[in-house]
Design a protein around this nucleic acid. Structure first.
Length: 494
RNA sequence: GGCGACAUAGCCAAGUGGUAAGGCGGAGGUCUGCAAAAUCUCUAUCCCCAGUCCGAUUCUGGGUGUCGCCUCCA
């Protein structure tokens, strides 16, 4: 049973897919007018994990994420640079993909763009006009009428009177109600525009997501989400216009999932406030997987304060898990080499029982991991189980390396299973996927390292510590870490 | 002004009506030529007040504090 916190009901609900064994998701993407910051990345990492988890459970997942590639900010950026809006949007879509790929975010099934969905948008606006939910002004602008919609405000839990008390609304005395929002913006001189029955212009901000989600997922789909700041007005307006157009208050998204903000010094990171770090910049100092891991150590709905210190902590914690990953791989490799085949004696009988304990623990933690993920995608709890498994894996490895354990053939089977479980957890969290590439070393490097280590070993044998330590220190400066273990010298990249 | 969220150890962060996961940091031990890595042990009574209950950190009310939305925003 999977429970999810639904913003619509403000409570956890049991998830029932519309179609057995299938999940449909629409996540609001970005407006590509500049580089995404770490706060922008949070919903995408969140949804990526949710998708991975559903996939692990055997669901067929359909995931749509849009690009709002025509918008005021894009036009402004284009004008400022003297280039076309297409050039701006394409440039930042590229940056978006580069950043998100580095965070191990799997690609969506479809990335619809507003500019490629104009006819559908026009058709939806026409429907809203026909049904009396929208009206056109002489200027050519088309607005959605919030007063025509009795249920307006149900997602953000506000009513029109309360919001008007705030009085921070754009002044436009032509609108019937100050809260009415634009579906179609009449073209201004030198702006990109499309022809429509309402005149030349372009879509307003919210209509595009309604149109694209309905187009690619149908009138009902399971999940819709994004950052909490989208609840109002963006998602509120989406539900309003979508259900009005369809004429069914149960249509559109069934579960609304919103992630909390990333903050800096406890205040919201935002482009307009200028207090942000782009993913690009963070990636210059930290591996994408560490950044991702940092985000997932906190539950998606909780606020998360970003700082250099926090990321460094995440790096250290990540390395611990990474070590277990390496240890398991090392053990698995040795199993293949047949090192584990021993005949039984008193000592190894005890060891076999130790390994069985490890296997039992792993199975238990795998179940706990799934339970944590099933409870509103609690990655923080799920990751804690990885650490518990990690501790016992390292403990076993340590005993093996020091010779305390003389494993028998049966242990090989156990280790394979433990490794499999650890990898399944890692796959849901989305870590240890870029490792192979990052640490791939050529035969040449391996040979060189062998020679260097051999020279250092000679120095050590001769108790020439000065030379031995210099080699180790110099390698460390070059980003290579040497570890002297009872089983020989191990090296790895920092 | 309206609406909402949160308040857990030095720091970060889960969670439960029956005396609190995990991570970072710190202290001590094992291993090591030294280191690194690893491992073991230790490191909280959950903002304040009142109430419900056999029992509350977990429920209710009040207070204080922090943050967010109401304007573009993930």
């Amino acid at each position: 049973m999977i429970q999810v916190y639904n913003t619509m009901s403000r409570s956890k609900e049991v998830f029932k897919p519309l179609k057995e064994g299938e999940v449909s998701i629409y996540c609001c993407g970005v407006t590509p007018y500049n580089a995404p910051h770490i706060g922008n990345a949070r919903p995408f990492v969140t949804w990526d994990v949710i998708r991975r988890f559903f996939k692990k459970l055997g669901y067929k997942v359909r995931y749509i994420q849009n690009f709002t590639d025509i918008d005021d900010k894009i036009i402004n950026a284009a004008n400022a640079e003297g280039v076309t809006w297409q050039e701006i949007s394409q440039r930042y879509i590229n940056v978006y993909f580069k950043s998100m790929d580095a965070l191990n975010i799997r690609r969506a099934d479809i990335y619809p763009k507003v500019s490629e969905t104009i006819p559908d948008i026009i058709s939806m606006i026409q429907t809203l006009i026909d049904k009396g939910f929208a009206y056109k002004l002489e200027s050519g602008d088309v607005f959605y009428s919030v007063e025509a919609d009795k249920s307006y405000g149900k997602l953000s839990k506000r009513n029109l009177e309360e919001m008007q008390a705030g009085a921070r609304v754009e002044v436009n005395d032509k609108k019937r109600n100050p809260m009415d929002f634009a579906l179609w913006k009449a073209a201004k001189p030198n702006e990109p525009a499309w022809d429509s029955p309402f005149g030349a212009g372009r879509p307003g901000w919210h209509i595009e997501c309604s149109t694209m989600s309905l187009k690619y997922l149908g009138e009902k789909f399971d999940f819709h989400g994004g950052g909490a700041d989208l609840i109002f007005p963006h998602h509120e307006n989406e539900v309003a216009q979508s259900q009005a157009a369809i004429g069914d208050e149960h249509s559109f998204a069934q579960y609304w999932i919103h992630n909390g903000f990333i903050t800096i010094d406890n205040s919201k990171m935002s482009k307009s406030a200028g207090n942000f770090f782009t993913v690009e910049d963070i990636l210059k100092k930290y591996p994408g997987e560490v950044v991702r891991f940092f985000l997932l150590q906190t539950h998606y709905r909780s606020p998360l304060d970003f700082s250099e210190e926090r990321i460094q902590e995440a790096q250290v914690a990540y390395n611990r898990l990474k070590n277990s990953y390496d240890n398991l791989n090392d053990l698995a490799k040795k199993i293949e080499c047949g090192t584990f085949i021993h005949s039984g004696d008193k000592t190894s009988m005890v060891m076999v029982s130790n390994a069985c304990g490890l296997a039992e623990l792993a199975e238990r933690l795998m179940a706990a991991f799934d339970d944590a993920m099933s409870d509103d995608f609690n990655t923080a709890l799920a990751i804690s189980y990885m650490f518990e498994l990690s501790r016992d894996v390292n403990s076993y490895y340590s005993d093996y390396i020091s010779g305390k354990i003389q494993p028998r053939g049966a242990d090989a089977f156990v280790i394979m299973r433990v490794r499999e479980i650890f990898m399944m957890m890692a796959e849901v969290i989305g870590i240890f996927e870029n490792i192979v590439e990052a640490n791939a070393s050529s035969d040449l490097v391996d040979k060189l390292m062998e020679i260097i280590i051999s020279i250092r070993q000679d120095s050590r044998s001769a108790k020439n510590w000065a030379v031995a330590d210099k080699i180790r220190d110099d390698l460390k400066a070059a980003g290579i870490i040497l570890e002297d273990t009872p089983q020989g010298v191990k090296w790895k990249q920092a």
